Amino acid sequence: MRLSKRTPQLNAGSMADIAFLLLIFFLVTATISSDEGINRKLATPCPPNEDCNLASNNRNILRIIINNDDNIMLGEDVVLLENIKYEIKTFIDNNGDNTCSYCNGKQAPHASDNPREAIIALQHGKQTSYKRYIAVQNELTKAYHELRLQYCMKVLDKTYNQLNETDLKQIKEAYPFRVSEAETK
């Protein structure tokens, strides 16, 4: 009897199928992280042949500056991150011109005329950390959220879950989110 010196052949036809199935399995089960950002509505660009300079009273602009050392400044004063929300709420809800029937402000001369006129001018240095910038943005969002929630309870006499589209529009008109990151003069 003769012995063959040939090695047996493996059928590699199904190997490609198995590799393909493993690839599909890992693509389906793997989680792909998605980048998230800050949900903000950007200002519309200025139409050609129109003057788009901001004609606002200086009193209605709250300047928040985050310098290169991550210090937060309101005007010329350095403030703590924990105090930003209170300062923003006090500025926006001031009722300086006495036209706001729902405002709780004390009509301070250094704060805004009313919430519809209030503008938050946020600026940051080139070396400002992203973490500090986001922390200030979060405090800004919290301030507006609390003011809108207060309006919801006081004026509309509803909880946030009971609101309809008309109510939400009314709240956004009462406390419009007006934040500018353009350089102010």
Rank of each mutant, 00 (worst) to 15 (best):
A182Y: 03
Y130E: 15
C52W: 05
T141Y: 10
P48C: 03
A174M: 02
I38M: 14
L168Y: 03
L149A: 05
D97P: 14
P115R: 08
N68E: 07
D113F: 08
L62M: 15
F25D: 02
Q137T: 14
M153F: 09
K172F: 01
A135R: 06
I84G: 04
N94Q: 07
Y151N: 04
L163N: 02
V78M: 06
R2N: 14
T7A: 13
D97E: 03
N71C: 01
T99C: 01
S14E: 11
D17T: 07
K142T: 11
Q137N: 13
Q107Y: 13
D35S: 12
M153Q: 14
A12L: 13
L42M: 10
I24G: 02
A118S: 05
K169W: 01
A108Y: 12
E173W: 00
Q162F: 07
R6A: 11
I64Y: 01
L163P: 05
A30G: 11
E183P: 07
Y144I: 03
L3Q: 12
S14G: 06
A182V: 00
E87G: 05
A118P: 04
S33C: 06
Q162M: 15
N104C: 13
M73V: 00
L74H: 00
T141I: 12
I32V: 15
I66Y: 10
K106C: 10
